[in-house]
Design a protein around this nucleic acid. Sequence first.
DNA 1: GCCCTTTTTGCTCATATGAGCAGAGCGCCG
DNA 2: CGGCGCTCTGCTCATATGAGCAAAAAGGGC
Lengths: 320, 320
Amino acid sequence: MEITDNDELLSIRAAELYYDENKTQDEVGAILKLTRWKVGRLLASAKDKGFIRIEIVHPRARRLSLERAIKERFSLADAIVVPTAGTRGQDDLRARAAQGAADYLASLRPVPRTLGISWGRTLHDVAEHLAEGWATGVNVVQINGGVSVNQRAGTAAATAFEIARKASGQATLLPSPAILERLETKQSIESDRTVAGVLTMAANASAYLYSAGVAGADSALVESGYLTSGDVDELVRRGAVGDVVGRYIDAAGMIVDPSLDERTVGMSLDALRSAETSIAVIAGEGKHAVARAVVTSGLCTVLVTDEGTALDLLDTNFPA
Amino acid sequence: MEITDNDELLSIRAAELYYDENKTQDEVGAILKLTRWKVGRLLASAKDKGFIRIEIVHPRARRLSLERAIKERFSLADAIVVPTAGTRGQDDLRARAAQGAADYLASLRPVPRTLGISWGRTLHDVAEHLAEGWATGVNVVQINGGVSVNQRAGTAAATAFEIARKASGQATLLPSPAILERLETKQSIESDRTVAGVLTMAANASAYLYSAGVAGADSALVESGYLTSGDVDELVRRGAVGDVVGRYIDAAGMIVDPSLDERTVGMSLDALRSAETSIAVIAGEGKHAVARAVVTSGLCTVLVTDEGTALDLLDTNFPA
DNA sequence: GCCCTTTTTGCTCATATGAGCAGAGCGCCG
DNA sequence: CGGCGCTCTGCTCATATGAGCAAAAAGGGC
């Protein structure tokens, strides 16, 4: 019933019978009039020519091979890559990354005594995806100034509280605006005992968890009123690709506007760079550039991202 | 490094290690601290919950399970279903179906002495995909009136010649328009010795190969000038879903306009229905309705189609 | 709390698969 | 035409996997 000319086609027929019809190699051999060894060889060749694709379709699946590649390429301590397969849109994808980050955080050993976190939509998602009792006695401290200008004021605080509560720990907020208008105000608020105390605690945290924003008009810092969209446009013009803990960086991971940076309250990027464990959660189509800036400039030791971003990171001819 | 709460998640982790990292079940067990039997069971459960998807990515791959289902549901002698995976657009998909039809034709046993064919884009594609020497001594005969009005005049003839040449056989054309204006003309042309001879040969062919068109303004019969798009609109209004060998049928496979049908030269649908072997090649998004009409009304014994159409055919609650 | 039912676990054993090797077939060159 | 090296085939044997079963554990009603 089947005239199969060449080996490639034969290996496809064999694969159909073996994988789709789950017959044994022996049975396949009987049908195609081949010895079972030949069938085995055909199957092997189909596999390494890439004709057989095995995909794990699950919201919490991961791409271990990509993780390994990313880890090596950018010398990270760890990488979590969630698959795109079967996602319905960017929201879904970000939810997966958040879940991945939550899982990673829960599995982190040693369990951090103090966890420094930033705030934003991504962090909020991570907090939501953490399981109750993901750890015990973890104190959470904010590492950059919170939102305070508009109705989203509570979000940053809520994120910190939720993460802490689910680990039966304390949350410590950083009671300060994210960016101040004048350098003097920033300096004096930093010298305030309360604020200074929180900053010290933040500086000594055993692990950090943060996300990154895209430099654009829809940035959280614009939405919260710290910057105008004009300010952001100007930053972009000067090379900004996104922000990390409220600080705008360019593709090389350098501060774009030092004077703006000086007025920004929270951990410095250098402090973050010297941290033992810092987990960056950066996923979604738009964030490829920031993600690259973060990993190439050593801002994180662990990256949680999606397959698309991971592939983009590996794609280009950066020799590390 | 990994706290995995429930079994589902565990089975996903196991699958990642087993399939993506190709470790043995034993090794996976060691990593996840499970016995290898547990791993085996987790893997099995992941498989039948559908988390593991194995796909054969190849232009000439087929979907045997769908073929079996279609074959049973519509009591066909055979069904060929080509996969959608990895196609870039409808053209690609139609090319695959054409290849599938060509392969099937070549593998047909007993080799038909005379093969009756229709004409059109699909048939042309099939002819192109046939391998040189796909058979020997097969005579090809047209079963419905050819195009003759415009520049595509040569296509129908070329298709027949190509199929015949590649099988070192003779091609016999049906030297008549597809549709005539007056019934009398049709009757007299049919009684012409040459035409009658061809029709007899067609009626006695050992196998038939044809496609179906969608009832719409872009139909080949409109393009060839036999019908106006207004005519087709009217046919659609009266329930036409498409045409088979130049004859318009409704969803039940019945002739939509008997008087038009009487003026159409070529094999009748009833003659086609009583054929031992008739292969219909019907693939593409737009052809679901015609495909359904063809298979439910017993017009073909073998259907060559694509995954999408096959799923659509199986989808609805038609009890055969 | 106790006993019965149901599920899960760890196992033995049969089967399926892959690695590696010896011999056959084939082309290529002198 | 014969020798040489190459690839491909069929095999043996070690390993990986799945079926089936008995024991253990978990749940559930009284």
